[in-house]
Design a protein around this nucleic acid. Sequence first.
DNA 1: TAGAGGTGGTTTACCGGTAACGTAGCCATC
DNA 2: GATGGCTACGTTACCGGTAAACCACCTCTA
Lengths: 315, 315
Amino acid sequence: MTVSRVLRDGTGFSAETRAKVMREVERLDYLPNRLAAAFGPGGTSTLIGICVPRFTSVLFATVLESANAAFARLGYQCMIGSHDQLPAEEELWLRGLASWRPAGVVLAGRHHTPGTLTLLREMTVPVVEIWDLTTRPVDLSVGFSHFDTGFEMANYVLSRGRRQIGYVGALAGRETMGLARADGFQAALAAGGVALAAKEVLLDHPGFYAGFYGTETLLGRAPKLDAIYYHDDEMAIGGLAFCQSRNIRVPEDIGIAGWGGMEAASILPRRLTTTMVPAARLGKIAAEALVSRLRGDPVPEVTVVSTRLVPGATM
Amino acid sequence: MTVSRVLRDGTGFSAETRAKVMREVERLDYLPNRLAAAFGPGGTSTLIGICVPRFTSVLFATVLESANAAFARLGYQCMIGSHDQLPAEEELWLRGLASWRPAGVVLAGRHHTPGTLTLLREMTVPVVEIWDLTTRPVDLSVGFSHFDTGFEMANYVLSRGRRQIGYVGALAGRETMGLARADGFQAALAAGGVALAAKEVLLDHPGFYAGFYGTETLLGRAPKLDAIYYHDDEMAIGGLAFCQSRNIRVPEDIGIAGWGGMEAASILPRRLTTTMVPAARLGKIAAEALVSRLRGDPVPEVTVVSTRLVPGATM
DNA sequence: TAGAGGTGGTTTACCGGTAACGTAGCCATC
DNA sequence: GATGGCTACGTTACCGGTAAACCACCTCTA
């Protein structure tokens, strides 16, 4: 018991005892057993579960990396999951996680199955929903409004004098955040008295390919477009590649706007017009919010991280 | 005890008892406690640790995603770590992992600190080293020879008639696998009687930026190059962007070759010459090898996954 | 000098799953 | 009918860390 106290809080023992304990810890090359510590009711776990749609999307990978790093720095370990935009997969993962009695959970997105919500309540641990904002979070929420980023971009597109505007997206599983951006985009157009001229949503993961072929399809159907908004930067770059392959001039013939602010966007011959998303900051803030809550410090229910529209040379 | 047997092996109880147990499991909404199961000596953990350099590299993210999916399908949960090419970080992470008494460990790379090696031995669990091959693995190894992929590319470059050949790489932390590729590349050139004309290695993470500016620096020093081999595809695409910005024709003026086979490489106006790396297959095989070993099935010590040089239009 | 209060450390119980072992009941064999 | 082997199930102990309770000893105060 004294050893336990020395190794944790730091009260109820003399300096001499502490030294004696430390000496033995050193001598025996003592490795703590986190299983035992977390075991039993009142067990103090340092396990955090993080579930995102995919690891292979740069933005999610960045969130994961920064959140994981922040948790590690604060003495927590992360168990991961990917649900590929399928809420049922998320529930399955959460059930597996719950059997490890974690200290907290981070979920990307705000659409969960009833089973997930029940389980989250029963686990009675802090939950941070990241990426998209929620007016009524399960517990904590860190993110921004995807609707608003789309809305803002539509206004920018209109301000550039474009009127024949198309959209190319990708829909894998029950993806909702890309849809929210598209909705926001369309809403702002409508507010400006402009209807979306054409829309192509591929049933696939977003990516370079999808952007390339989505653009081909869209322009096949609506050749007179003078602007295209994309699900994300990868798809926009795919679209740029298509335009280049057909000698369609960007931005003279057609304007292109992406979303996400990936590194590649800024080394293109023409810098891509896009919305910068502070993924690394978001992950860090989410981790720190969760740990603050675990420590009983006050935490705002909702934290907004700001995105920024970056005008490039493609729109 | 009977419940425990019903829920696990499936011997030593009647069908009637099984039904009774299942009924209660259902009624109580029983959630197993994996902490308790893993606790104590002879505890059966389903926890796997996976450590890679970074999550934000597409290839590592792909390995992580496929390995995690395979483990999940086989009933295991993954705890992650990233060491950013710093062996000391890997050791720190492993120490944290070890205190959770995992069932197995997956490490990217084969260079570890003495402390890491000692700890791996003491943990007495299966270890899979992935990505780079090892002649003498700690336990299991799944990967390919980075040296060989560089070697193969150099021969291809020579076969295209190039003789003024440069290399652009990036070196973050104690990265070794990119170095191995560069070594293999240089060795094949030497075997062909050609010396590497110029080399630029940035002390940074590989990426589009690094490729762009690395190319600028390299061509500033050695303007007469007729070919450049890159650390990876992202850097090669950065290099392509630089060439385009200076009206350097590819492949007429200069040939460009990357490594990794990222999706973007195949939608470029000219398809990038590169080495395809089966990252998803590698992750899946690594996970299955680890689980096979845990189940006591025979597993080859070393599994080679084959890469493939894909001639594109840039070299 | 009795009692209160504080400091430093020990003892005990507990968490939930499982290995090891015990045992009851049945059947086959000698 | 004694013995041994088998199946189906129950009992006990144990893992390592920690909360709670407890105790020994010291100091201070009324």
